[in-house]
């Protein structure tokens, strides 16, 4: 299947490299308004570089396009791709407003193309295992849940992250992973209450969701944490507890005597010694869905719902009140 990637930043590179080594996928082009970024990613992956999305679509004729642009641009490019009859694989969040999300869903439906959104946490083996064991009743009925995710402020590398109109901030951009995960595991939330501190250097949020089942989850998101990217979750139920913690799952540690060169990846992505990364699993799953027409593990409707809950958290912060969903 011929695929292309638009947006050659951190996530665009993850998508492009994954397609480049994936059986059954052919990365035909990568696109960025920054010609240098497109050129560098093209050199790594063997795809053709473009600065014009329209030319990429015309000349490389991909069947599907990965959109890895700043979030405020998701709608514009999803609509362009759909209009050209291309399937859309969009990074999360689906969009920054429900209106944009709905426009994307409607445009893809009308064009007869699929829309997938990269809620990749569902493809992390530790989260997937947790969900399976929860479903198997290993900890009884879930009661109180915690999930957290934090790291350096991404705006230090890419300034658009610091602009809430472009990224949505820590809740809409990052905590949305955990919002999607707890909704996947615990069902529909009925209310949300949120606390937040945001300034130039940090965006720290605590969001509590109460579910229709009676369970509750407290989610912590932190941009500007003075340490490495990390994530963790704990599900406490009537008959047990399951915990996962990225800081305790390091299967490989390499320590070099000399200080490594400065300038790591744009958005730090946890490294694990696995045959396939969660991104490989996710993108291969989306392409498999395109081939056999099956429903994806995470739908555009799921992505819209995660956005709706994230936006309700922002409303709770603004009003100081609990928001009923």
């Amino acid at each position: 299947m011929k695929v292309a990637v638009v947006g050659c930043g951190g996530m665009g590179r993850v998508h492009a490299e994954s397609y480049a080594r994936m059986d059954g996928a052919e990365l035909v082009g990568v696109c960025d308004i920054d010609g240098t970024a497109a050129g560098e990613l093209a050199a790594i992956t063997g795809a053709r570089p473009y600065q014009s999305f329209e030319r990429l679509l015309e000349e490389t004729a991909p069947e599907a396009v990965s959109i890895a642009l700043p979030s405020h641009l998701h709608k514009e490019y999803a609509l362009k791709a759909a209009a050209a009859g291309k399937h859309v694989i969009c990074e999360k969040p689906i969009a920054l407003t429900l209106e944009d999300a709905d426009a994307m869903i409607e445009a893809c439906r009308a064009a007869g193309v699929s829309l997938f959104v990269g809620h990749v946490v569902r493809f992390f083996p530790e989260y997937e295992q947790l969900r399976r064991q929860l479903a198997d009743g290993r900890i009884g009925v879930p009661g109180v849940v915690h999930a957290k995710r934090g790291g350096g402020h991404p705006a230090e590398a890419k300034s658009w992250f610091g602009d809430a109109d472009k990224s949505g901030g820590v809740i809409v951009d990052m905590m949305i992973h955990d919002i999607d995960f707890v909704r996947w595991t615990l069902g529909e939330p009925k209310s949300v209450y949120a606390l937040n501190k945001r300034d130039d250097r940090m965006d720290y949020a605590l969001v509590t969701l109460e579910f229709r089942s009676g369970a509750a989850a407290n989610l912590e998101g932190f941009w500007g944490y003075p340490g490495p990217f990390h994530y963790a979750a704990e599900f406490a139920g009537s008959e047990g507890v399951i915990r996962l913690d990225s800081t305790k799952a390091g299967s490989l540690t390499v320590r070099k005597a000399e200080r490594a060169q400065a300038g790591g990846p744009v958005v730090e992505i946890p490294q694990s010694a696995s045959a396939l990364s969660p991104y490989d699993l996710e993108l291969a799953h989306f392409l498999a869905c395109l081939r056999d027409g099956s429903e994806p593990a995470v739908t555009a409707a799921d992505a819209r719902e995660a956005l709706r809950i994230s936006l309700a958290a922002l409303e709770s912060i603004r009003t100081g009140l609990t928001i009923t969903l």
Binding site: G143, T208, S238
Partner: peptide, 8 residues
């Protein structure tokens, strides 16, 4: 603001 319930 608090959540209080019987779950365990």
């Amino acid at each position: 603001y608090a959540y209080a319930a019987t779950r365990f």
